[in-house]
Nucleic acid binder design. Sequence first.
DNA 1: TTTATTTCTAAACGATTGTTTAGTTATTGG
DNA 2: CCAATAACTAAACAATCGTTTAGAAATAAA
Lengths: 187, 187
Amino acid sequence: MARKKQYNEVEVLEKAMNLFWKNGYKTTSMQMLEQEMGINKFSIYSSFGNKHSLFLESLKQYKSRVNTVLKKFKNGTNGIDDIKTFFYDSVRSNFKKENEKGCFLTNTYNEFCETEDELVKEQMDTFMNSLKEIIIEKLQMDSNKSKETVLKQANYLLLAKHGLAAAARVNTNEEIEDYIEMTFKNL
Amino acid sequence: MARKKQYNEVEVLEKAMNLFWKNGYKTTSMQMLEQEMGINKFSIYSSFGNKHSLFLESLKQYKSRVNTVLKKFKNGTNGIDDIKTFFYDSVRSNFKKENEKGCFLTNTYNEFCETEDELVKEQMDTFMNSLKEIIIEKLQMDSNKSKETVLKQANYLLLAKHGLAAAARVNTNEEIEDYIEMTFKNL
DNA sequence: TTTATTTCTAAACGATTGTTTAGTTATTGG
DNA sequence: CCAATAACTAAACAATCGTTTAGAAATAAA
């Protein structure tokens, strides 16, 4: 028995996510969010609480999107080749778009690694850990590898993935492709 | 015929650099700088102009420090081994310290890559270009490599260096060591 | 149509941002 | 010792930050 919301909460969250993704947390102001989301500050606060919780929601939204890629990754049966495909899939979204924003999670990791924001760090860690698990799983498919080698290579690939995500913002598609190919030559 | 400065400009600049290095530009406030540098806002402004120019000075200070490592790198005669040594030297400072701040230039690159701050970008580009030049030079010492291979490997190493710097903030010394060894396995 | 309830607009909130200014303190040269 | 000059302290500046609030507009049920 009252007025209806004139916006879709998922749609405006998606827009907020893209803005945080591009500019980071600190640089993105409520004024910018207002403009990008197309709704009033009041509406933002009534739907998402405050800036920080809106950021956390954006992170979760991103993770649920990434989860699709992660599931495909997990379900593969080709060992190292699956990891390579995952690397390509991770930067694939950037290949199409005009503006490369890298990986939202990695960007956030870099922005928050000196802070004491436990909520954000928690979001990061759960993702990194599940990623590491899958990579180890894939590497273990090759029965020739010792346990030590598996762990060493997993660390290598995790760090390479982190670096790739960071570098994907400023490098060309060709450079990125070369990098991935070279990375897997070493295994 | 007047009062003397009660602080050393190079010393306080070094302290400002460390704060920017750790927290980035946006997160570091004048209040934080006041406290860290141990001098009043007035003194900061009279010595360095404003926050932005203080940041640029901090970048230059960092670059001049890195230049020592870069010169050693350039003067080597061992080709790829020199590059590897340079990679180790680049993260060496982190090995000792309690708090890993990564590479100030890479951190800045990541923070500013979506902005239009030409002065900061200029500082970044000159460094990246000179780095790429040296890497190509080193790779060319191996006369077996084709021109194409050299360029491809140079791009690979530059991206790996970028990624390493980004990851060095959140990874352990062991992981970093493993990563570098793996990176140079098949060049 | 009226009334209750919710969403909207827009202005204002206190706190913090980077920056400036007025006034005090200290040091140097005469 | 005195006067001139530079560096200090501390308060205030306007602008912007994230956040809240009061009142108008709109919609559903009676």
